[in-house]
Design a binder for these strands. Structure first.
Lengths: 196, 196
DNA sequence: AACATCATGTAAGATGTTACATGATTAT
DNA sequence: ATAATCATGTAACATCTTACATGATGTT
């Protein structure tokens, strides 16, 4: 008998996605390229491997679907054990995940290299985060026109999107603060040292 | 000859930390339990393994230091190749890291389980994030009394801390938004279904 | 002819987690 | 006595990344 180990996480993201709609590994990989993938990253190799394991665990079942003018596919769906596992995990306390912020390490180390280069990198990250906000805003407009009327599943999807917007906005604001402070510091230092 | 592979990351966090101050694996592990560790998580096992590799790569050197009434230690310091590698990486474009937000997955899947349990979990996360802000604020008060006067290294350390505060605040605000919206949705549903 | 999409995987290597292991000193 | 701090590691396992691999159909 398989016991569910703590720390499993992609499994649960897949369970959530398959609960919303059954699909093939390929379809899941596409969802993880957007939608749920904005909040839990996973490559297709990870997904195929994990689906295999989840079938062994008895959490999901697989139907072979033949298609015309397209390769056959395996459509996965959540079964009773999978739903039970998901329900168990949902209320189980999980600590906020480990933080890995490359940009923070670069800013902290900036003095050890070319500060101008780090400033460019910060500006680039600012653009990336602003782009993500654009994407989220577009989804917000398209799928959640009247947020006040949302209930259940739709409300939850909307709230997750709101989290993405909030966190990305925090990054953008942070980049702006850092750019302003580091540029004025950098400028005052370079003008000083250039006056010889 | 070793080439520096992309994607290496703990190495660079260690280089930044050792540039600020040379130290032993044990001391580094402690720094990764706070300070730089707030922005790049690493366990002592990872650190010892990585230090070994970095010596092989020629990025750092190691001095054996005998101590009285304490075990001997190995003090690592960055050498020329390490400084060059750090400078190279600092300006190299790195994409914002993969996002892994357990809580977002839980919120999105809440309908598949006990919504009340998920609400408790969100409240718990809110407390964790608020606690982190407290820690950051205490460091801010203790180490960065007059932020406007900061320059160079100190300014950079301060700005990284500001990022931590901003991101954690975004999480707290998000949790509040989610709790308010989900509670009112959950309440209206349970009162309806209880009236039979 | 070349490329994109649909669809599934394997294999090797890097990285991260968990448990185990040792041994001295210092504080309760 | 017991636990905490200082100090360093090994071993096994789980997970993630990168590259490789196949093959059909549809598009430029």
């Amino acid at each position: 008998m398989h016991t569910s180990l703590p720390g499993m996480a992609l499994e649960h993201a897949i369970l959530v996605s398959l609960e919303e709609r059954s699909g093939s590994g390929y379809e899941l990989a596409r969802r993880f390229g957007k939608s749920i993938g904005f909040f839990w990253a996973a490559s297709h190799q990870q997904i195929y491997r994990t689906l295999k394991r989840m079938v062994e665990l008895g959490w999901i079942s697989c139907d072979h679907v033949a298609q015309e003018s397209r390769p056959d596919k395996k459509v996965y769906r959540v079964n009773a054990d999978g739903r039970a596992e998901l329900a168990r995990w949902l209320a189980e306390p999980v600590e906020p995940g480990a933080i890995r912020n490359d940009l923070a390490v670069k800013i902290r180390g900036a003095s050890a290299g070319d500060v101008g280069g780090v400033l460019d990198e910060i500006a680039r990250h600012r653009r990336r985060h602003a782009e993500r906000i654009e994407v989220y805003r577009a989804i917000e407009r398209r799928d959640f026109g009247e947020p006040d009327r949302l209930t259940g599943r739709h409300l939850h999807q909307y709230l997750v999107l709101r989290g993405g917007i909030r966190v990305e906005q925090a990054f953008v604001d942070w980049c702006d603060e850092v750019l302003a402070a580091m540029r004025s510091d950098h400028d005052s230092r370079t003008t000083e040292s250039d006056q010889r």
